[in-house]
Amino acid sequence: MNRYLKLLHLEVARFWKLYLSLFAITLLMQGSGIYYESGKYVSSVQDKMGPAIDTYGKYAAANGVVSFLDILSSANLWFLAPIALSIGALSLYIFFIWYREWTGKNMFIYRLLMLPTERRNMYLAKLSAILLFVLGLVSFQILILPLLQSLYQSVIDPVLRGDAESMMTIVQSHSLLRILIPSNFTEFVLWYGGGAVFVIVLFTAILLERSYRLKGIVAGLIYIGIAILLMAAPYLITNRDNYDYLYPSELFTIEFVIAILIGAMSLLISFILINKKISV
C-alpha cells in the first residue's frame, strides 16, 4: 500500500507543472471569455439606448433581461476550448504516462521494474494518476463556475440581469457540462467508472505493444476491438430495427456486468504481462 502511494505521488509530481498550467489556461480563457462577452453585452445595450430608452430599467422592460446562460453560450468558444485542450492533453498522457519510461538514455523503466515491490503497484499508480487528473479537472470546473458567475454579475448591472440560476440549472442546461457533470451522483460514478474501464483497456493494449512490439500493436488493436464489440453485443443481438427485446433495466444490468468483466479481464492480462512478458 505504502509503495503504491509513493508511486502514485511520483506520477502526480511528474505531471504537476503541466497539470497546473491546464488549470491556469482554463481559468484565464473562461474568465476572459465571460468578462469580454459581458462587457460586449453592456456596451451593446448602451449603443441601443437613446432618448426614448434612457435607463437600464427601461431597456430591460423593452428587451428582456440577460442570464448567465446567455452569456455562457455567446462565450462558448472561450469556454469550450480549454475543456477540449484538457481532454486532448489527458488522452495523450494516457499513452505518454507509459512511453515516457522508455525514452532517454537511461530509461527509467529499468529502475521501476527493479523496485523491490510488486509490479502491479506501478500499474495501479499510473491508472489512479490518470483518474485523479481527470476528476481534478472536473472539480476545478465545478469550483470556477460560481466564480465565473460572480464575474458576470460584477460586470452587468443587476437591472439588466434576470434571476441568478443555480449551479445545477447552469450545468444541466449546458450541452457539454451536463455530460462532464451528470445530474446525480450514481450517474457520476457509473460514467467515470466506465471511463476507468476504457483507460484499463487502453493500458492493456499499450502493455501488449510493450511486450510483443510490432505483433503487440496488432494484438492491442484487436483487443480494443473485441472490448468494444462485447460492449455493443447486447444491442447488436437484441435491438433489431428499434424493436428491443430486452427491457432497459435488463440491458443496463448486462452492460454493467460486461463492463466489469472486461475491466477485470484486462487487469488480469495487464498484471501477467507486466510481471512476465514486458521487455525493455
Binding site: 502511494l5 502514485l8 505521488h9 502526480v12 509530481a13 504537476w16 485523479l132 476528476l135 481534478g136 472536473v138 472539480s139 476545478f140 465545478i142 469550483l143 449551479m167 445545477m168 457533470i181 445530474s183 446525480n184 451522483f185 457520476f188
Partner: peptide, 24 residues
C-alpha cells in the same frame, strides 16, 4: 513531500461532494 497529491485528492472529494450534496 506529498502535499500536492494529498491536496489534489482532498480538492476532488471536496468539490464533487459539495456539488452533489447541494444538488440533493
Amino acid at each position: 513531500r506529498y502535499w500536492f497529491s494529498i491536496l489534489l485528492v482532498v480538492f476532488i472529494i471536496g468539490c464533487v461532494s459539495t456539488y452533489y450534496v447541494s444538488a440533493a
